[in-house]
Write a protein that binds this DNA or RNA. Structure first.
Lengths: 329, 329
DNA sequence: CTGAAAGCGCTAACAA
DNA sequence: TTGTTAGCGCTTTCAG
């Protein structure tokens, strides 16, 4: 395993010159450059990131914090992050926190120990105080979920507006009894989405029925099933359900089918996220499409800018309501 | 940002002693140890992995190669890998190759450049020659998909047997006209699975009908839909489908439903992998369960052993046929 | 039990 | 245009 010294010796130049060739600096004469390149080829030399990283005090690694990899919502965002990161010669360290402060802390240690140059946090359950403290010394961006007034830049969508439009769509196709499957309101997005839900109802003169509002601990498939069980037991049964995640919606769909009811004839459903599977169900799911890939690239760009010491502004991206079979017979 | 020097000065000891404390070596007197620990606390010192890694010529990073993150099959494996890796103070670098040799090469460069200490390859489309060459110098393990006689250790299941059992199950519940949705036979697992399929049919005196064997380019949802379209057009229509991935099976299910047919009454379906979604469809999917999490932990253990210079043997793990609604009305 | 010093592989300031 | 050299932060050998 050759190192830069050996290449220098082989080429009959100094290590500085080799380094210059390696880093594409144009101040090297083409004759010397060729000598060096030959030596590199001959010795099968590969520069060590270890040495370079220490010297440059950087790891060129980006820490991505997600609650769990099994929520497909994050997949496309991650692809966006990765693509941009690679283009800038960064790589990503994908970290599942399981919303567990202990695991979270293990990962935070990676940036404290210089193993990562910055963090993109997508974990709604992240310890905000720790994050804020960390943000004083390290580059941090929040993606999708964020903390207001934390001073940490974020990229997200207008959750209230998205929710408002989803519910309005249900109203427009004739629904008045609309249930909301929301996650815990300790999460900002949950508070924003219920706000949009209520605004849509109120604007259309529909009285809010608290029985129709279900909170779930997580936003997974089983939670959707459980929540739907409750909804189906309601005396004056809703004719539509707006779920704040596709996984919840798919759980609801399954439960409705199991009970011999039909979507959308008996109950219409709107989900949120446009995960791949929202198109594989029967019927396909009407859902709020977040520009996930874009969100990923934007987050990555923000983080890398921040690492470079530039000033970074938060960004709100557009969303879109995708009407599919679960709301249109 | 304090470094080890400053800690040493603050504690009134040498950097060597600080290093010893950091690495939990017991040859330090408890009095000195306390002094050092106090200094560390006082200066808020965090040892830099960059320095340590260079010194130790290791990155403590494991490269995980997958074709795409959007195939849920890999998720649980990755969780297994990660859990074991973390327990050994390693972290993982998750890399999507998109089965693209160019991208693949970017990632291979990471190990060549010492940015990763080893590779777990799960990409069936990996360039085997490159992998073999790499394996001469670096620690490499193949997971799930592997190349025979490559000399590179692998962990996998007995694909032929798994396939055989799946098809036998269909035969036992009365099916004779069983279609196979297989992926391209350039992949070893595809060759193994068709072998199991044929063996099951032959053993039961069922003549193999080549019209019933469909090959798909990828093993995703859309491929399943397309393949099912073809199958539905066959004159003497099969009454059962064995798909080599759950995603294919879910695509088939969707297509069958779209055509007003019923699963399993009209057509039974068996999938492969037991991805999370196989339990969310309606009906739920009978599938071959691979011990994915286990496979991940085993692969990680094998890789880390290999990095440590130990000898590593290939391992075949058990699988299980999980009978659910799609084969039992 | 502790310290001095070398060195992992690289980059960049400075000198020539 | 090129070379010399210091040093990034750490671990470890060797001496004491």
């Amino acid at each position: 395993m050759a190192n830069i010294q050996q290449v220098a010796k082989q080429a009959g130049v100094s290590v500085a010159t080799v380094s210059r060739v390696l880093n594409g600096q144009n101040i090297v004469s083409s004759k010397t450059r060729v000598k060096v390149e030959d030596a590199i080829k001959k010795l099968n030399y590969e520069p060590s990131m270890l040495g370079r990283n220490l010297r440059n005090s950087e790891s060129r690694l980006l820490l991505i914090l997600i609650p769990t990899i099994s929520n497909p919502f994050y997949l496309e965002i991650i692809q966006g992050i990765e693509t941009f990161a690679i283009s800038q010669n960064y790589n990503i360290l994908l970290c599942e926190t399981d919303s567990d402060p202990m695991k979270e802390n293990i990962y935070f240690d990676l940036v404290r120990k210089k193993m990562a140059d910055g963090i993109i946090s997508m974990d709604p359950a992240v310890n905000v105080e720790t994050l804020k403290t960390l943000a004083e010394k390290y580059a941090i961006i929040q993606c999708s979920e964020y903390e207001e007034n934390s001073g940490i830049p974020y990229v997200t969508i207008d959750n209230e507006e998205a929710s408002y439009r989803a519910v309005k769509h249900l109203i427009q196709i004739g629904h008045k009894k609309i249930a909301l499957m929301n996650s815990d309101e300790k999460y900002l997005y949950a508070r924003q989405r219920i706000k949009g839900y209520k605004r849509a109802l109120e604007e259309n003169g529909i009285i809010i029925n608290n029985e129709y509002i279900i909170h779930t601990e997580h936003v997974g498939f089983e939670n959707g099933q459980q929540a739907m069980k409750k909804i189906l037991k309601i005396q004056d049964r809703p004719t539509a359900v707006f779920a704040v995640s596709d996984l919840l919606a798919i759980g609801a769909l399954k439960e409705i089918n199991t009970n011999g009811l039909h979507v959308p004839n008996d109950i219409a459903i709107v989900g949120f996220d446009k995960i791949d599977f929202s198109n594989m169900t029967n019927p396909t799911l009407t859902t709020v499409a977040q520009p996930m890939y874009k969100m990923g690239t934007v987050a990555a760009k923000m983080l890398i800018d921040k690492i470079r010491g530039e000033h970074v502004e938060s960004i709100i991206l557009d969303h879109e309501l995708l009407i599919r079979e679960s709301t249109s017979g």
